[in-house]
């Protein structure tokens, strides 16, 4: 135990001195021992980074868009969190989104970290809040979170992000119809990736038709290969952050994030309690197995 205490101190000091390796260890702590991570994070001052959630169905080019964004970033410090799903059967995961950003792996200003969602409710990593705090404590200007892109993760990113970017691809023809109700509501801006595709204009007009009447959501056309349209997107993202910082929206967002962070801690505690629960000397797993067995028996008798 004393051993980990030393490591914690080292991480704390390293985080203060912006040591990259300490951030790497800090993020591991967020995953493996979130309580300990929160303890350290409480002792660190945090920068208010612009937390940008990037969401959209798999294959729309989220990672490629992020890579293009990084191409255009000059001197800004960016933390990138990419979340991939864990297998519900083995717990294993293939964290593959990083590949498209590998050309930025050695850039001193960028720090890319892959997370498995570990089957978390909402599809984001259970330690996403801690990870986000860690990047802020490290002094990142922006923190970009890329979601898995399926199910709840698309919507839940709004619980943590200051700005939600919904990425659409003209290749997915029925994208607009498929836009889930929740997704429409959380989008702060839309990006149509692959602007060189002739269908992107069709998608654009359809999207305009759907969004008009609701809140005004700006739509951007980008080309991840040539980088076209990305600079305008970045400028507007910065403008937006400045705006929400001054008009009180950011404060609301941060309150919401804190609330969800607290909820996630409570949920973790409850999970922990359930896992360790014993009824008549038997733990949850044993009880579950017995239940399954009895249900199967009943099935057999019925047949």
């Amino acid at each position: 135990m004393s051993n980990t205490r030393v490591r914690e101190d080292e991480i704390l000091e390293g985080m203060k001195s912006h040591d990259r390796r300490s951030l790497a260890k800090m993020l591991s702590l967020c995953e493996k021992a979130p309580d300990m991570a929160n303890e350290i994070l409480d002792k660190l001052s945090k920068k208010t980074s612009h937390v940008i959630g990037i969401t959209g169905s798999p294959g729309v080019g989220k990672s490629t868009l992020i890579s293009t964004i990084l191409d255009k970033m000059n001197g800004k410090k960016i933390g990138i969190v990419v979340v991939d799903p864990s297998s519900p059967f083995t717990g294993g995961a293939l964290l593959g989104d990083r590949v498209r950003m590998q050309s930025h792996a050695t850039d001193k200003n960028f720090f890319i970290r892959s997370f498995a969602n570990k089957g978390a409710l909402g599809g984001l990593s259970p330690s996403i809040y801690e990870a986000c705090d860690a990047f802020e404590a490290f002094g990142m200007d922006d923190v970009i979170i890329e979601t898995v892109g399926v199910g709840q993760s698309e919507v839940d990113v709004a619980n943590i992000a200051d700005t939600v970017v919904v990425v659409l691809s003209p290749d997915n023809g029925d994208e607009v119809q498929m836009l889930k109700a929740g997704l429409m509501e959380i989008a702060d801006l839309f990006v149509i990736n692959k602007s060189d595709n002739p269908r992107s204009q069709i998608l654009l007009s359809r999207l305009r038709a759907v969004t008009s009447g609701n809140k005004e959501v700006p739509i951007y056309l980008t080309n991840a290969v040539t980088g076209e349209g990305v600079e305008r997107l970045l400028d507007d993202l910065d403008d937006r952050f400045f705006q929400i910082s001054s008009n009180g929206i950011l404060v609301q967002k941060r309150k919401k994030r804190l609330l969800h962070h607290a909820q996630s801690i409570v949920r973790r505690e409850i999970d922990h309690l359930i896992q360790n629960l014993e009824i008549n000397g038997r733990n949850l797993k044993e009880i579950r197995n017995q239940l399954i067995e009895e249900l199967c028996k009943k099935d057999d008798q019925n047949n």
Binding site: S86, S87, G92, A93, L94, G96, R98, V99, S114
Partner: peptide, 15 residues
């Protein structure tokens, strides 16, 4: 990479 995933590990493949 796939086999290690199926053995329950988190695997990052760089390309």
């Amino acid at each position: 990479a796939r086999a290690l995933r199926d053995a329950g590990m988190e695997v990052i493949y760089t390309g």
